[in-house]
Amino acid sequence: MDLSIPLMNSLTLGSLYTLMALGLTMSFSVTKIANFAHAELVTVGGYVTALLVNWMGFGLGESLIAAFIASALLAVAMDEGVFKPMIKRGSKPLFLLVASIGIGLVVRYILFIYADLNAVITLQAQTNVQIIGRFGRAGITTMHLWIFPITIASVVLLHLMFHYTKPGKALRAMADNEDLARVSGVKIYTLRRLMWFIAGGITGVAGGLWAAYSVITPEIGWYALLRIFAASILGGLVSFWGTIAGGLIVGFAENFGITFMNTYFNVNTAYRPLISFVIIVIVLLIKPTGFAGFDLMEWIKERRKKGGE
């Protein structure tokens, strides 16, 4: 069995899932909302990118910036328009989740109407993709030169922001304990807006990259949402590095898992989403905190202690 193709697919999709899941993890850790409308941030980013490239003749780079802004504004609008007023009225987290489903439906089906009227229900950004190298039987294309550097740059920038800038540190404090951040006089609502802006933005960029890499529909975000949740839940929905590991694990597990099962057990490739689903169920039922709070040294110590007994 040649593994070069599943390997490249795993890395590519794993990177996209990571970007999307980082957005979800950011918004969940700060607001504790399991935001199902996160799916629509992906879709909007994808459509903005594809339409600008195809109709306006924009380059992919400019289009991705536009996708960032569009999804970022949508994310801020969701919070300002729905979540924040609901939280002020004392809504439970579950009600916020249900409201996010409502937001998702509204955005998704507005997009559907738009796409239906303009005959773009299925769409791909027409970029000049060239094969620039080979890895086994898999081609390395100019698309990969967009996806990998953007993912790595986003992770590095986010890491720098969370650890070396004042708002980044304050956001981490908020994720740990909102009261604490309030007491220390941090402007909580400005920070919250900033968080939604960035979380929405990177998710939109991931959607844009997806639109250039593959075909999208107004349901692309909903399709990706299972993977996004799987990746985020692997990170306990709060851990930055846990989410990155989660995105890659989901990418690898799906591509290798389905290739393996298809080759040896003749399993239909349509069962691919079951893999992410199994990840979600297993993690939530066995270790709901995912990788969050996972400390390698502590783990080793514990193992030694048990072995010594």
Binding site: V82, R89, V98, G102, L105, V106, Y109, I110, L117
Partner: peptide, 25 residues
């Protein structure tokens, strides 16, 4: 209607969910 009206249905469902939860939970 120029588009599939079922789409309208889901937009309305979404709006009802949001409005009820916001104003009359």
């Amino acid at each position: 209607v120029e588009f599939d009206v079922t789409y309208m249905k889901y937009i309305i469902i979404g709006l009802i969910i949001i409005l009820v939860l916001m104003f009359r939970p």
